[in-house]
């Protein structure tokens, strides 16, 4: 429960807002699938935005709620993308049926989560700068390993992935991601995770199972990082190790810190903003890679918690938390 301030507060209205929003987004995606409401470019941008929301929300769990600084999220994305891509291209025979695609995506997530678990073990002893370096090393190792293993296609990458990432599938995964992360964050585990950010030592002395909380944060975060990677691979139909470099991690970091740390509303906003911005900055070419980190530096200087840091729209909260807010206001 890391959100002291709530944006919007009418309980009655809020309780239905999330299901209604989610359902209508999914419905719109289905309608589009049927009658092609949007043109190809718009569809591409929408799917990219969806993948970015998943990446941003899942990284926010570790970097925002838990207050660590992971620069390795592109690594989890790579693991997910390759795991799902290889499964679909090299292991499963024939074309992947549409109904099986969620399983392929989930497979990418599970493999990424397994790696995330290992990284979590490393986070028991090290924190802050050192942990940041560990995540960086992880990213480099993943990239370098993918370049050197012939099975994954080496530096040239993996070709011939089917185009299975449709808008409805993406929207569904976005909803699942936000729902699960919200459930986690507003549970006893989420309180443990935020307590670690605030004061790990005091949290431990107050009974917070810090190791379990760290494992959970890393595993869930990397799972959805892997899911995003799987979707990404099946959107572009081609992946290579260079796609998942530190620049991609930086892009996700910018989303998290623009939108706001420890806020799912913020992640939604940040991911969409950055996606749109990236499209607008396309003509700048390599200067884009200057603008993004520069934005990050300015954000840190002038609004270190991002636009909606530590705040949440009321409609994203579970019902009982909402009631709690009301009670807090009039005890």
């Amino acid at each position: 429960m890391p959100t002291p301030r709530t944006l919007g507060s009418s309980v009655a209205g809020c309780r239905w807002a999330l299901p209604v929003l989610a359902a209508s987004a999914f419905l719109a995606a289905l309608l589009h699938q049927q009658w092609a409401l949007f043109n190809g470019y718009t569809e591409f941008v929408l799917i990219t935005a969806g993948i970015n929301i998943i990446l941003c929300a899942s990284l926010n769990l570790v970097n925002g709620y838990m207050g660590e600084f992971s620069v390795g999220h592109a690594g989890f994305m790579a693991v997910g993308a390759y795991a799902a891509g290889l499964l679909a291209v090299k292991i499963l025979p024939g074309a992947t049926p549409v109904w099986a695609f969620p399983l392929v995506v989930a497979f990418g997530g599970v493999i990424a989560a397994a790696i995330g678990f290992l990284l979590a073990l490393l986070s028991f002893k090290t924190r802050g700068d050192y942990l940041a370096i560990i995540t960086l090393a992880f990213l480099m190792i993943v990239k370098s390993a993918l370049e050197n293993i012939p099975f994954t296609g080496g530096p040239r990458g993996l070709l011939g992935i089917e185009r299975l990432t449709t808008l409805p599938q993406t929207v569904a995964w976005v909803i699942v991601t936000l729902w699960v992360i919200r459930n986690l964050v507003y549970s006893k585990f989420g309180r443990g995770i935020t307590a670690i950010r605030e004061d790990e030592l005091a949290a431990g002395a107050m009974g917070v199972r810090t190791r379990e909380a760290k494992i959970l944060a890393f595993v869930v975060s990397s799972f959805f990082g892997g899911v995003a990677g799987s979707l990404f691979a099946h959107q572009l139909q081609f992946i290579n190790p260079a796609t998942f470099d530190i620049i991609r991690s930086t892009d996700i970091l910018v989303m998290v810190y623009i939108g706001g740390v420890a806020s799912l509303t913020g992640s939604l906003l940040g991911a969409v903003l950055v996606t749109v911005l990236a499209q607008l900055l396309q003509p700048l070419g390599t200067w884009r890679a200057v603008v993004m980190p520069l934005t990050l530096v300015f954000l840190m200087l002038f609004r270190p918690r991002g636009l909606l840091g530590l705040r949440e729209f009321a409609w994203l909260l579970p019902g009982r938390e909402l009631l709690q807010r009301i009670k807090e206001k009039s005890p």
Binding site: F69, G128, D129, I247, L253, M292, P293, L296, V297, M300
Partner: peptide, 9 residues
């Protein structure tokens, strides 16, 4: 850490 990374990039 973030600004360090950012400045480098």
């Amino acid at each position: 850490i973030i600004t360090a990374l950012g400045c480098g990039l």
